[in-house]
Structure formats: C-alpha cells, structure tokens
C-alpha cells in the first residue's frame, strides 16, 4: 500500500497505530507539520489530503492508501516560496513559527472551500452561490488553527492579501 506525499510515492507503515502526522514527522522526516496537541484541538498538524484540509494527528496513516498528501514542504518548489508563505513573512503572520505550517496549509484548503461555496457559521443566505470574502469570514474559517503568540491579525492580513481576488 502506498500514498503520495508532495509528489513522491511512499509505502504505508506496518503499524496501523501510526498517525499520518507521526508518519510524516518520524518516518519521512517531514517535520514541518507540527504536533501541538495530538488530539484534534489545535490545527497545527493540518495537511491537505486530496486537496482537502484535514488533521493529520487524527488520521491514521493506513487510511491514506492511494491518497495524495501535500504538506508545508510541498508548497514551495526549488526554494521559491508559495505566495502565501511570502505573505506570512511580509505581514508577520507568525512569531514562534510553530503553528505556521498548519495555518498556511489550512488557508490553502480554506480557499478551495470558499471557491466551492461551502457555507460557514457566518453565512447569511445559505442559498447564495458565492461566498463573500471578508475578514470575519477568514477568521471564522481559520478558527480551527490556534495561535498562542497572537499573530492572528497578521495571518488574516496575509490571507487577504493573497487570496481575496482568488476567492471571489
């Protein structure tokens, strides 16, 4: 059984207890994905599975057979940062940097959800086809990613900077 991680095909571990998070960090040495709580309460471990943002700490690696995983390490190529990574630096969207990979992966997954018109808690008219991109929508949709340093304003700035046009 295999999965694809950042374009590379890798074998799934034998021990089914291994979470996708620990598989990435300890087996593949992709330690950009962070472990903040290991219980689905912080979002630091967010990765994209077939383009959807999920929590890798609550996903068993063995469940990812034939899946396509993208981690923070897969967003930049040849040393060129993803525009959102660059925007996080520009807008100071982090301090310690520990929640950052999860925030960035989550935001990328969020953009796809907004394009699809997935509603949120703040959605006024559920029949509307298009999600209006505003800062409170970003806040609500990023609320699964905790940050203790308090970089929230900068994170929203960065996301707005890069995604405002793309989302609408």
């Amino acid at each position: 059984m295999t999965m694809t991680v950042n374009g590379n095909t890798v074998s799934i571990p034998n021990d089914p207890r291994v979470s996708l998070l620990d598989f990435l960090r300890e087996h593949l040495h992709l330690s950009g994905t962070k472990k903040g709580c290991n219980q689905g309460a912080c979002g630091a471990c967010t990765v994209l599975v077939d383009g959807q943002r999920v929590l890798s700490c609550l996903t068993l690696a063995v469940q990812c057979s034939e899946r396509d995983i993208t981690t923070i390490e897969g967003l930049s190529s040849d040393g060129v940062l993803h525009p959102l990574q660059q925007a996080f630096i520009e807008h100071d969207g982090f301090q310690c940097g520990y929640c950052t990979p999860g925030q960035i992966c989550s935001a990328i997954g969020m953009l796809e959800e907004m394009r699809r018109g997935v509603p949120s808690q703040l959605t006024g008219d559920l029949c509307a086809e298009v999600v209006a991109f505003d800062r409170d929508e970003v806040r609500e949709r990023m609320s699964g990613n905790l940050c203790r340093c308090g970089a929230h304003n900068g994170i929203v700035d960065a996301i707005e900077d890069v995604f405002r046009e793309a989302a609408e």
């Binding site: 959807q52 999920v54 997954g109 969020m110 699809r116 509603p119 959605t123 559920l126 609320s143």
Partner: peptide
C-alpha cells in the same frame, strides 16, 4: 454544502458548520 440540504433543511447546514473546525468537518 449540499444544495438540497441548504435549501430544504438549512438548520442542518447551520448545525454542521457550527460544529468543530473545518478540518474536522472535512
């Protein structure tokens, strides 16, 4: 996000998006 749920059973859409986080709902 399903069209029929949103139009016919909006309380279900709203209940789901009030729960957990987007990652968990995915």
């Amino acid at each position: 996000e399903h069209r029929l749920i949103r139009t016919r059973f909006p309380l279900l859409s709203r209940a789901i998006v009030a729960g957990a986080s987007p990652q968990i709902r995915n």
